[in-house]
């Protein structure tokens, strides 16, 4: 289903969900939950947005049934830890590559995905100051290294 323009802000979170459907369904579930909550705040009035949100909700309910036994979905505190660990794992992988001077597409994507997952953590409540800083740094690094590689420069 085409993403309504009003939901552009969550398009990358939804893409991350798709990419994790098989790899880590818990991550996929919370990315969609984040998109759902954010989407409802952005626009739940126009028919195209409501239609999209209803489909997304159907998908979330199905996923929740399928993941029924998984504590990461049935218990908020476990889910929070799962997403935070995953976000930090991606962040640390990219950060290690960065510090080793190894710049490539995968590490850019890891920085960017980790920043999206720090957004997703907000479904569990307010982000810690540390996570806010990680998100800011990861997003900036992803943009900076991407620009350097595109222009043939070596990131500093």
């Amino acid at each position: 289903m085409a993403l309504p323009l009003q939901f552009k802000a969550v398009q990358h979170h939804l893409r991350t969900a798709q990419e994790h459907d098989k790899r880590d369904p818990v991550v996929a579930y919370y990315c969609r939950l984040y998109a759902m909550q954010t989407g409802m705040k952005l626009d739940s009035k126009t028919p195209e947005c409501r239609k999209f949100l209803v489909k997304l909700m159907d998908q979330l309910e199905t996923m929740k049934k399928e993941l029924g036994d998984n504590e990461s979905v049935s218990q908020e505190v476990v889910g929070n830890a799962h997403i935070e660990n995953y976000a930090l794992k991606m962040f640390l992988y990219a950060d290690n590559e960065d510090r080793a001077g190894s710049f490539h597409k995968n590490m850019i994507k890891s920085f960017y995905t980790s920043s999206l997952l720090f957004d997703v953590l907000s479904v569990f409540g307010e982000l810690s100051e540390e996570n806010i800083q990680h998100r800011k740094y990861a997003r900036w690094k992803a943009t900076y290294i991407h620009t350097c590689l595109k222009e043939g420069e070596t990131p500093v």
Binding site: L33, M36, M40, S44, R50, M57, E61
Partner: peptide
């Protein structure tokens, strides 16, 4: 018909909110 349309929209929004609450309730 405008008010019927907006009533339907409001009902659908309420339903979405309650489904979301239910989804999160068991977390």
């Amino acid at each position: 018909s405008g008010s019927v349309g907006s009533s339907v929209a409001a009902a659908e929004q309420d339903e979405l909110s309650s489904r979301l609450a239910k989804l999160r309730d068991q977390m």
